[in-house]
Design a protein around this nucleic acid. Sequence first.
DNA 1: TTGTATGCGTTATCAC
DNA 2: GTGATAACGCATACAA
Lengths: 345, 345
Amino acid sequence: MEKKVTIYTLAEKLNMSVSAVSRAFTPNSKLNAEKRKIILEAAEKYGYVQNKMASRLSQNPFHIGVIMRGRIEAYYHQMTDGINAAFLEFKDYKVSYDLRNYKPGEFTVEKACKTLDEFLEKKYDAVIVHGLYNQDMINKVNQLADAGIKVVTLHNDMTGTKRLFCSTTNIAIAASMVAQLFDILLPKNHRNIAVFTGSMQSPIHQGLVFNFSNHASRYGLNLIQPYDTLDIPDIAERLVEEAFATNAEINGIYISSANSIPICRFLEKHELGDKIAVIASDVFEELSEYIRKGIVKATIFQDPFAQGYNAFAKLYHYLAESEPVQPVVTTKPQIVLESNLSLYE
Amino acid sequence: MEKKVTIYTLAEKLNMSVSAVSRAFTPNSKLNAEKRKIILEAAEKYGYVQNKMASRLSQNPFHIGVIMRGRIEAYYHQMTDGINAAFLEFKDYKVSYDLRNYKPGEFTVEKACKTLDEFLEKKYDAVIVHGLYNQDMINKVNQLADAGIKVVTLHNDMTGTKRLFCSTTNIAIAASMVAQLFDILLPKNHRNIAVFTGSMQSPIHQGLVFNFSNHASRYGLNLIQPYDTLDIPDIAERLVEEAFATNAEINGIYISSANSIPICRFLEKHELGDKIAVIASDVFEELSEYIRKGIVKATIFQDPFAQGYNAFAKLYHYLAESEPVQPVVTTKPQIVLESNLSLYE
DNA sequence: TTGTATGCGTTATCAC
DNA sequence: GTGATAACGCATACAA
């Protein structure tokens, strides 16, 4: 049972003080360069590695602000659950977080700005931002970033901001999976696909639709213009009627957001379940029914829980341990059929 | 910024010693029952929660022994990687582990017994066991369990042992997914499926084959007797030839183990790729080629990395924080097609 | 810049 | 059973 190598061990071996050794591992602390070099070499030699836990214990706490703009309930709740799960895992490590949740309808740009100003004033160390992507918000976010606050974007990235990283899903692969699934599900000569998206304002949906149309040609899928449901159920209901009124033949439907229920309802009502292959997005209670009924053949699970979890967890590790982060952290999109549905509920 | 509630806060409020408060949260420590009750109530009242990090820092270290019997390289390496990843995450928490790896061919029951005896003698706190499932091993494992050593089985459970829990994949769902995939891939009138399994000695493969045949009938799939490759490539090569020599028509092949390469090679050689739908198991380099060539239509990823990770991580939390564990911890089997293959490599 | 002393929140140890 | 005190491994305010 070899004795553990600590800063005391090194200090003794080198005839230096423990604080000198400690400082050697803190990049910005004042320490003679020569001395640091000697310590770092000795650390290598004796196999010393910093104990993150003990380190954290003696450091100052930090605070994370979270601002969420909810659109589809089923989706953003899972993200906040993920954030909370990560928090619970790190709560003993001197982290706290402050969640501000704007439910669908409650949101205004002014309110969001005010909240971010509050985070700024309270000198939070970092902020997680979800569902904001207009220019005013981008400016405000940059203001925080300039003040030294680390910003993480969740689900939708904010292009053009100085955010630290974005926690999202892999939309390129998700779109490619959908295309391949249609290839498997549909016969060669019946491949007209209608696409229903969430809000085309959202980079995620833009990307999903764009990538899907790219892959579609590879499999000989004909795309009907994308219908933008704006993530509002009523609009989806209206659009699906319009789609069937306008198009002579639809063989497949791809719904890139969680706003799929009105569409499923329409198909059930008109008994189109057998004739049309539907591929939806995400997993939630109401959708499960339609998967079990066979109206939805598959859905792409984008793991919103893990997206939330990753945002908080990677951020923590960055703050606490200066661990480098990829600019974009993604979850694996997963294919959910009736057979494996139970694992996702 | 409310001051943090610690054992000192409670001790002060209650006019007791910090030791008393600390002991109140350790079930087996000696403390007046009445006193404990008062402390627990006060903890509730003032919102005190134990700080796991500080707790761990002042506790004694513990040791975990790991014994791995390798069969298919691609598979068990990912499991040991997962174990190691978990270790790296907890290494600062006074855990150490001792890995004994038996490569394919190196393994004997005697050697394994000797290793386990060594673990016993060294009084390790827990042991993770993989790939052992004969009676001698079961007895030995029970011997450790009786000595108070917690045993975790990895991938294959050891039925009839007093193990703490088993970290594995969800074979019932995996089998059901395979059946549904064949349903999607094969026309109604061409559904003869040949099954190639790893070793039927292994509970995993027994379960996979059993569950698959259950679901098969639901989709009108005709099963040809399972071929047991014993996880040996040469045998797989021989059996696939035999299968095609014996059976008039084979439309699909399900390979329940990672021993799939000889079968793919046979199909490629005889240009059967277009005619036969192959569903394989796991993801590894050689298989990827056949997925890209279209010879393998799908593979079921059982996340051996996560299985290893879970074994170590859940065990850690059980040991360090007495966190309860499910008797069987499973990973989600995932469908891998060509379109999402890159995420699994 | 450097070293000393103290704190972080808890448990182990050892007297009582 | 109980309480004081020394760890645990590190960072840092403060003094030098």
